[in-house]
Design a protein around this nucleic acid. Structure first.
Lengths: 187, 187
DNA sequence: TTTGCTACCGAACAATCTGTTCTCTTTTAT
DNA sequence: ATAAAAGAGAACAGATTGTTCGGTAGCAAA
């Protein structure tokens, strides 16, 4: 691909991320992104049809990496099915977040964090679901699997939000411990 | 208070709700709300400073009722502390939602549902926290209470989202059963 | 190196939305 | 009945959006 395209795309993503860190998504204008990225107006619209389109592309870029990295992780270790595994997908995810690749923490702690968390949860849901199949569950046979999957990914995402809003004072390992404490009893 | 004010305020809320049911919050313009509510431009701006302001007022109106009704409920029954209580605050909340007062279901299943869910969770957090004090917990003394509170209200809200997205096929009592199954083991 | 293709720039545009100000009319409460 | 309050409606400047156009510059392949 043309280097110019990559350069422009990166500039747009960076500018957009930086703007999201300081103000709400709704209040960011395309004009601001253009100015901040230092590109021409037409250039922006040749890359993205709309601001929503840009958001979607950014999310796919962000969570694509994280989730695919987590999927690799599930190949070696299971979800939490292999009980008391020292490493888990969730711990892996938390560490990945902590590394703050592409300033994902900045986005998740921004005013518009819900948007990203929703994307995150949707991605996570697929991951959890794929791991849930053929799993030897405990005695919760009267609880729909569908519900449990949603509960696990939902709880995880809410925990991440809580973590970030509290300025990430806990280590990934500590969080993983907390999460096990509330999730393992029901799996 | 002047009847005209009430009438106008209601008209705005209704129009806004109806618009939210069909399109995303971001894409709704003040002009549309004005046209839909069939009021004058100045009238809108004499009631609300901005669209965000309107949203906030709507949420306070919505969740104010629900939460205060739930607080009454906690006076007679506890949260889940009194184990195997036939009625619980959560069940009460679910029933209240199901009644679809003020079309709250329409809003929670709209494209912008996250916004409302976030408001809902924040309200709920206070409620759960007030109930958590002086509660005899089980063996989770190494898990921060802060985390547990967030886990409970977060899980509840995620469950509601799951419920609504699945077209509310379960009864409040069933959902309450599911929720107990994933929450009671850790309290 | 040359050539053709592609991306980018910048100006200008019509259309829309916003928030405010003004005057005038209608309704309410007392 | 009257004064106060609320609404209607027009008009406004300013900003944002998405598009079009002609011109410039960089890239890659021959």
């Amino acid at each position: 691909m043309d280097r110019r395209q990559q350069k422009t795309r990166t500039a747009i993503f960076s500018a957009f991320s930086a703007l999201l860190a300081e103000k709400s998504y709704n209040k960011i204008t395309v004009q601001e992104i253009i100015d901040s990225a230092n590109i021409g107006r037409t250039t922006f619209y040749s890359h993205f049809e709309t601001k929503d389109d840009l958001l979607k592309a950014l999310c796919e870029d962000l969570f694509g990496h994280i989730i695919s990295s987590a999927i690799d992780c599930t190949h070696t270790h299971g979800l939490y099915s292999e009980q008391s595994a020292p490493e888990s997908v969730f711990c892996h995810l938390l560490q990945h977040l902590q590394e703050n690749d592409k300033n994902i923490i900045g986005l998740l702690s921004s005013e518009s964090s819900e948007i990203f968390l929703r994307y995150f949860k949707d991605s996570l849901n697929g991951l959890v679901q794929s791991q849930f199949v053929n799993q030897n569950r405990k005695n919760n046979t009267d609880i729909p699997q569908d519900f449990l999957i949603n509960h696990v990914s939902g709880s995880f995402v809410e925990m991440v939000l809580w973590w970030i809003k509290g300025h990430m004072k806990q280590t990934p390992a500590e969080l993983d411990h907390y999460f096990r404490a509330v999730i393992e009893p029901i799996l």
